[in-house]
Design a protein around this nucleic acid. Structure first.
Lengths: 230, 230
DNA sequence: CGACGATTTGAATAGGATCAATGGGAGTGG
DNA sequence: CCACTCCCATTGATCCTATTCAAATCGTCG
């Protein structure tokens, strides 16, 4: 593992005020690996061996039951994932697959649990990280429960618009198939939802989307700080 | 605050291995209060003043946006709620109302944050508690995303059946209106879903539900350990 | 008893899913 | 470089699920 990647990980809030000693101990038995796209990293029923850190690429966390599958969230670098599972020492609860070629650091879950009891700063950071993760899922859950498919899409576009610098055009960071699953609809329905948004100034060309009537789109989307911010 | 209640709270896993001194400090400025049914305890946009501990009664956590409202979860005694918000020191993110007359201990959120950095045992317990809460919402989110309304009801009934000792009859612990909202449907649709389950051995009489064909109901519900257990 | 809210039922509508078919790109192998 | 293939995306038709609106019934509580 090169210093560049090590520093990248080190500078994550979760690890930022850990002692050097503890950080080094954390990395014992860890390994950095590159995976091609479309690789299953783990299944939701696997026991949690590792905390994962996505250094580069893109990862989808999804869930399956009874032949149905749904995207729960997308991980973008640099970020950890499955911290909660690493702590509870049970199964992952979510499955993961790479959407692109991805570089991932895998830290043994037991190292995390050990660091938790040895390093109070790390424990504190973990608490905050988990609280954030918790609110993240709560937001996703609210989004799902309180909005229609078209509204979810409209709000998603507004968030991307903001994130990508409020420029005229934005680029969808994932395949539409995956976006559909993340927004809780079928690919067919996503296509139709885009058509529905046309009168609100949404033009789609492949993965490029332009928003020409921001106000109108916002009127439809009715964004909420408690669901869409952050 | 009487000793009985204090001991009840003290024995929660979250506080169980805190030092006595820290526990006493935690309670400084706390107060125990009884609220009648149907009282709003806080709104999702309020700043988080208190960690709440439900000693007795029942509380609904819900969310609103754009004139729509949905139940996110029900709290049953004895349990804490809004721990994540108390930690992040922002808004509650969820609103709360009593469903019954309820006795609630309110602990200043800043005490929680202080205890977090002073008491490592408490920090560790908080980490575990939050990891559990996180998985709880993930389960709810999966339930919502991967199942139809009838399936959600069927699985809900199976969980209640198990919790209430697998007896012939179970009692719905909440009004059907609230149950409907929790399961992500309208009250009308809940009524119809119960009718749909009749051929699967589900008989309803007010808040009493009997299950006569457990196997059939399970075949329909297809319960999943990763969604329904715990 | 009377009022109000909860629940149920019916009818109509809307939101989404499924099935089927077509067009389009990206990658593969010749 | 081109043809082929495969998967993604779109569109149409239809079906199913769930919401909405309306009305009737039931219970509870003052």
């Amino acid at each position: 593992m090169r210093n560049a990647e090590k520093e990248t990980v080190r500078s994550l809030e979760l690890f930022s005020d850990m002692s050097d000693k503890h950080f080094e101990e954390l990395l014992v038995g860890s390994f950095l690996q590159r995976f091609p796209a479309s690789v299953i990293l783990f299944s939701e029923t696997d026991l949690t061996d590792f905390l994962h850190v996505l250094i580069d690429g893109q990862v989808e966390l999804f869930a399956s039951t009874n032949n149905r599958e749904g995207t729960m969230t997308l991980i973008r670098p640099v970020a950890t994932f499955v911290l909660a599972s690493a702590i509870t020492d049970g199964v992952y609860q979510l499955s993961a697959r790479t959407l692109q070629s991805s570089q991932i650091l895998m830290i043994p879950a037991q190292n995390i649990r050990a660091a938790m009891s040895e390093d109070r700063k790390f424990a504190e950071r973990s608490v905050r990280e988990l609280a954030h993760c918790y609110h993240g899922v709560v937001r996703a859950y609210k989004n799902m429960k309180l909005r229609t498919a078209v509204e979810r899409l409209a709000n998603y576009l507004l968030v991307q618009h903001r994130r990508q610098g409020e420029s005229h055009a934005l680029v969808l960071p994932v395949e539409k198939r995956v976006l559909a699953s993340m927004l809780g609809m079928t690919p067919e329905n996503l296509s139709r939802s885009f058509v529905t948004l046309k009168p609100y100034g949404v033009k789609v060309d492949g993965s490029e989307v332009s928003i020409t009537k921001l106000k109108d789109l916002e009127t439809l989307a009715k964004p909420s700080a408690l669901i869409d911010n952050k």
